[in-house]
Write a protein that binds this DNA or RNA. Structure first.
Lengths: 194, 194
DNA sequence: TGTAACCGAATGAACGTTCAATCAAAAGAT
DNA sequence: ATCTTTTGATTGAACGTTCATTCGGTTACA
């Protein structure tokens, strides 16, 4: 008789979404709990029913957003297809997620370069570890990539994608599908075994 | 009779350096003015002699750090040398600056993905605009680079370098000179006109 | 003597967090 | 079916703390 059916945890998600939206506008300092509460249509005390503190709210928001990201990345992935095709599909998905979820991109970047990431290095989406990390291990072991340290690979790729997405968002220019593929080609040319 | 000779502005720089060091440990929220004052060996009120507010302190810190970065990047640059050599020299310098100034790297990244960068887009080091931006314009106009949007170039390069530097710093592994060149080759292979 | 640098206690606003009270709905009792 | 009890989600005012900023006074120096 596990009850999570009807309605519940709607407010939890509302709080997470409001926090995400407000962080982009005002940053961590600058978005008080009271504002999150008002934005989410919830009383301040309610937030403390779902989260122990403002700090854990941020930590759980990180895992929440990262989960969404991974789900978006994996859309249409087919292990039967050639590695390069899968690679391009994953990166196109990731790019699209970023430009469709600006506040998520902003938050993830901010989180990563904040004391949170240093203080809670173990906090991450399990889905991310299971799926995405595994994919790149495969690419390394099957010698699709240059012989560079594998742990360097992911941040390198992410760095370029984030740069491209941030560029489009800040300049309000829309990349065509071809433009995006060109950007991913920059990454691919850089890291593929030649 | 421009006075900045003897001693002065020593405390201003001390405050900037302390702020930089403390931000890395505690983040913006989490480093009160009182702590900066104590760390810099200065009274809280003194900080307000040099900076209008905590906010402008951060803004001026950004320009200050960016200036140091540009000076470090330009060491040994020689416009007579081949473009590729200059490119590699600049990026090696940038990488070295990052790993020798961890708190600066951390701060620059945090600043860029914070509301500050959105709210004060005009704030930047004049030296950076004059020298570094100019260099890349040259590379684009003389067709050294792939035909991608020039504004995409700088963030792409920075993204990879930052990824590599962050990787070395967090994993406490020391890249050899050859490793660094390999990383820069990833960038070069990605963006060069082929 | 006058000016600029400097100090640090005082101030007042803002904030995270607590908690006693309310309410709706589920479970249990008859 | 009806009433009673229990549960837990929800509220928002109140609390105590923290913090950025101010300001009256002190020191250093020209």
């Amino acid at each position: 008789m596990n009850v999570q059916s009807k309605d519940n945890y709607g407010k939890r998600v509302a709080v997470l979404n409001s926090t995400l939206a407000l962080l982009k506008e005002h940053g961590f300092h600058g978005t008080p709990i009271s504002l999150i509460a008002k934005h989410a249509g919830v009383a301040a005390g309610t937030i403390y029913h779902y989260f122990d503190s403002k700090e854990t709210l941020i930590l759980e928001l990180y895992v929440h957003v990262k989960d969404q990201l991974v789900k978006a990345i994996l859309v249409g992935d087919d292990p039967e297809k050639p590695f390069k095709d899968r690679f391009f599909n994953l990166l196109i998905n990731q790019f699209n997620f970023y430009i469709e979820n600006e506040s998520a991109l902003f938050f993830l970047e901010q989180y990563m370069s904040s004391p949170f990431a240093k203080n809670y290095p173990e906090k991450d989406s399990q889905l991310f570890i299971d799926k995405v990390v595994t994919f790149f291990h495969y690419g390394i072991e099957n010698e699709q990539f240059k012989n560079i340290d594998p742990r360097l690979l992911a941040p390198t790729i992410k760095g370029t994608l984030v740069a491209a997405a941030t560029f489009q968002l800040s300049e309000h220019i829309v990349f065509s599908k071809e433009d995006i593929i060109q950007v991913i080609n920059v990454i691919w040319d850089g890291i593929k075994r030649q």
